[in-house]
Write a protein that binds this DNA or RNA. Structure first.
Lengths: 226, 226
DNA sequence: GTGATATTGTTAAAAAAATAACATACTCTA
DNA sequence: TAGAGTATGTTATTTTTTTAACAATATCAC
């Protein structure tokens, strides 16, 4: 009961969505088998790494053929737990929250969007993609009557911690956080920080690197001190 | 000219936005100095790792005090290239594209959103957050008259590669891709795949892990073969 | 000033991750 | 059925990353 062994290394988990994405696309093709070498071509990971990652979960390949495209996709779905049904709610029906309501990624991953909450009276009652926005006042009651697995948090930064506290008090065990505010949650609550601007940051750093490398000056940063 | 040395390890780049986020928040506090130990508390990284990361870029700390909160934030901005002005456009004015138009993260990172493009005549002319949506037909002409640094791609998957081709042909050097479709771009184009559902995947995997660990059965996956 | 304390920057050690190598097993041709 | 060819799963090696340790230096109390 609750043994902490057998936990997949984060680094492998981080590659699973990439494998999944490519395998999903391959479902539409006529390709029946794919080798680790071809998968490496697609994903940018080395073939060796791919074989190692997959072998972590079992033996899915066929010698001298490669991996059955359909079968591997199914297995990935199982590994990622997509065959288990999960209910998700969105807290905060601003622009981002509404966009998330239209997100098409839920179903195939086993998620069902069941409600959207907001405190703005102008938004309450509005129907977004067949889901009616309801008052945040109803949150606790709703969660008591519906087993919710994940809450997507798209409220303004200032409200984030307070809502997180209410969610955890109401028994949530996983939060998908878009607020860019560092949240404090109990240890047994999974917290996935979705830094929406992370890509912008990385691009900026890399463009800056290129700029610096192109100019010759090797400026050494320090804080105005020797 | 174009030497590839001095490129920051990806693993360090991936932590920079986290440091930045916390330092930004600390600007509002009265805290003048912060130690690597306190920063570790906030970020979840070890103090040793934080000191090492920062020392990669220079020496910013003060012995027995820690890091000047304001100064370190400024330095991080410089390291991440936020003091360089960059122009960004959004391609695809659907729900996600529009939400991105309202994103408040651009300015502080040195980005200026200058236009939104779509092919849908019903959207063209609509003003989102002071930016008028224009026809995708104008893309090439617009890019010729404006030096654009980054394009955010929020078009439907089917259109993604075609738009990416047009962007690169028009000289873009960085794409922030939300399409969840694997894109092919020339080597000298930076591509940042923003898998919007990555967090959902990770949560699903982890919830599944917990479920499996709580039940005792050690099922061994394989593909229906011995 | 002196000694006690604090915290960095850096070096050394440990751990984790990625790559390379290869034995094994399967397929296909003739 | 033998032999050439192929691609896995796994072991060995290398590389990268993280943690631990500590010397150096600055601060502060007295």
């Amino acid at each position: 009961m609750g043994k902490e062994i057998n936990s997949i290394p984060d680094i492998i988990i981080s590659r699973l969505p990439v494998y999944y994405q490519h395998l999903k696309r391959l479902q539409d093709s006529t390709k029946e088998y794919i080798s680790s070498e071809e998968l490496a071509e697609l994903t940018g990971f080395s073939s060796s790494l791919i074989r190692k990652d997959l072998s972590y979960f079992g033996t899915f390949g066929r010698k001298s053929y490669g991996y059955d495209v359909f079968c591997l996709f199914q297995q990935l779905s199982i590994i990622m737990g997509f065959n288990y049904k999960k209910k998700i709610i969105i807290i905060g029906a601003g622009h981002l929250g509404q966009a998330l309501a239209y997100n098409k990624g839920y179903r195939e991953r086993g998620y069902q969007l069941v409600s959207i909450f907001d405190k703005n009276p102008k938004l309450i009652g509005l129907v977004i993609n067949d889901i009616e926005i309801q008052s945040i006042n109803n949150l606790e009651e709703f969660m008591e009557n519906n087993k919710i697995n994940v809450a997507a948090l798209t409220v303004p930064g200032g409200a984030a911690q307070k809502i997180a506290d209410r969610l955890t008090a109401a028994g949530i065990k996983a939060i998908w956080d878009f607020t860019e505010v560092p949240l404090q949650v109990p240890d047994d609550v999974l917290l996935e920080e979705q830094l929406i601007n992370e890509g912008l940051c990385k691009l900026s750093v890399k463009m800056n690197q290129i700029r610096i490398n192109n100019s010759e000056t090797t400026e050494d940063l320090n804080c105005g001190k020797k």
